[in-house]
Simulated scan of single mutants.
Amino acid sequence: MQTVVITDWQQFMALTMQLEGWAFRGQQNEAWRLESSLSRYMRDYVLDRSQWRVREERAIRIFRRKAHNFLAHPDLLKDDLRCLALMQHHGAPTRLLDFTKSPFVAAFFALERATGDAAVFALNTPALWNNRAVPKANPTLTRDMIDPRVQDNFDRYYFSNRHEIVWFGEPTEMDDRLVAQSGTFVVPGVIDKSLQAILDGYESNEELLHKIVLPERIRVDAMKWLYRMNITNASLLPGLDGLARSIAVELEIVWPGLMPSP
């Protein structure tokens, strides 16, 4: 994985312009591993890894049995990817990793609550899309073959936790949050390895993962740029929750000459 520590916000903009078509993920601590919320939760609270598969299956089963009480269209729970996307949207640990096609959205989520050096990870989705990167252990597992939107593919390639593969994409129907964030999901085939470790097992002539470290000192300038671009929680998280969360940034973004007299 290529790692770059940028010196200023302009360098970030110039660097990401070279990554046309890639997907991005922001993390507020540059030391954090690139892994799903489910992987982190299991590692911290379920020490017996032989239990991970059955625990994940049970969690999804419980969600499906109860979530219909709150949904206008409960049929969407039958689709594995849409069900996991819904769980992720509402805070449940899942194997999905949130990515975005916008490096600026990723930078916002990295920096918004950062108190030290943050990071944006960039994934070479064009190489994965065109099968220029395939798993060494089984190069026949192309992107189309492992598509989790295909019936039974989640059971075959993901819930079994036997295939060290990566797929990216969106459900056939996207919710408002995914649209607002230019979002996409990365779906790992195993949950006991980081995304970087899985990609290390891929055959490719291209770099598949970049890590861009955002030093703490650039945060103020970067957040002002993002505010000017209307990248805030109010725009990225449609609804009252997003608006309320966006007020935190309003506390710190103040333009000279616009503050009322005491």
Rank of each mutant, 00 (worst) to 15 (best):
L81K: 01
F159K: 09
K136F: 03
A107M: 13
L86W: 15
W52S: 09
L84C: 05
P148R: 09
L178R: 05
D176G: 00
T115N: 14
F63C: 03
L76N: 00
R58H: 14
I62L: 10
Q151P: 01
I146Y: 06
F154D: 04
S50A: 14
D117Y: 03
V166Y: 02
M145R: 14
N124E: 03
A118M: 06
R177P: 04
L123K: 00
L71F: 05
P148F: 04
Q51S: 15
I62Q: 13
G183N: 01
D117H: 05
F108S: 07
D176Y: 06
S182C: 02
T125I: 02
F185L: 08
F168N: 04
C83H: 12
A119I: 06
P93H: 13
D155L: 10
R156M: 09
R53I: 12
L71G: 05
L128N: 01
D79A: 14
A110T: 05
L71V: 03
T142A: 02
P103I: 05
Y157C: 06
D175W: 08
K136H: 05
F185W: 11
R149E: 13
L128H: 01
P135C: 09
W167R: 06
K78T: 11
N138R: 15
T115K: 14
D79Y: 06
D79S: 13
S102F: 11
D144M: 12
R55G: 00
K78S: 12
A85T: 12
P93R: 08
Q151W: 09
L97T: 07
T94E: 06
V120D: 00
A122T: 01
E173N: 13
F99L: 08
R58G: 01
E173H: 13
L86P: 13
H73Y: 08
D155K: 15
M87V: 12
V134H: 01
N153H: 15
K101L: 09
T184Q: 03
A110S: 15
A180T: 08
R156Q: 14
D80G: 04
Q181D: 07
L77K: 12
P103G: 12
S50R: 12
L128C: 01
V150F: 04
L128V: 01
R64A: 14
L77H: 09
N69C: 12
L76Y: 04
F70I: 04
L96V: 11
R113Y: 10
P93V: 08
D147V: 11
C83L: 14
F168G: 02
T142S: 11
E173M: 11
A137L: 12
T125V: 07
H90W: 15
R177Y: 08
F70G: 06
Y158P: 11
P139A: 13
L97A: 08
Q51R: 15
F99C: 04
R162V: 02
F109E: 02
H68K: 15
K78M: 11
R65G: 09
R177T: 05
T125H: 00
D117G: 05
D98K: 11
F159N: 13
T142P: 01
P135N: 06
A127W: 03
D80H: 12
E112G: 01
N130D: 04
N69Q: 14
Y158H: 11
